[in-house]
Nucleic acid binder design. Structure first.
Length: 105
DNA sequence: CGGGTGACTTTAC
DNA sequence: CGTAAAGCCACCC
């Protein structure tokens, strides 16, 4: 049985719209543990099959794909995002256009 | 007041 | 631009 915190994190990720991304910190804040952004990433790599939820839409605060090495290949995360219409500046998501804040949903 | 860990964040240099 | 360090806290063992 997963904890309420984990369940909420997962359901939040599930709600990220196509073409949008959110951050670990925003998810943590929305789930009531503002300072547990590190644990959000921990959940993503331990609690759930990687292909059942859009984990590629979760990036760090700067729009960097810090979790890409947890995918099958480091290229996959970026390719998935690009295929959904997300724009990049160098190796970062263009957060100004694509940041989705669950707290303002 | 257990100890280790982390897909984070912020500050500092 | 890069590296380092500290803070952070819920989970797992």
């Amino acid at each position: 049985m997963k904890t309420d915190f984990i369940q909420k994190v997962l359901s939040t990720v599930e709600q990220i719209p196509i073409g949008k991304v959110t951050t670990y910190g925003a998810i943590a804040e929305y789930c009531g543990a503002k300072s547990s952004s590190r644990f959000v990433g921990y959940i993503l790599s331990n609690s759930v099959p990687i292909h059942e939820l859009p984990f590629h839409r979760v990036v760090n605060r700067n729009g960097e794909l810090t979790g890409k090495f947890h995918f099958l290949t480091p290229f996959l995360m970026r390719e998935l995002l690009i295929s959904e219409g997300i724009n990049f500046i160098d190796d970062r998501v263009y957060m100004k256009n694509h940041f989705w804040n669950p707290n303002k949903k």
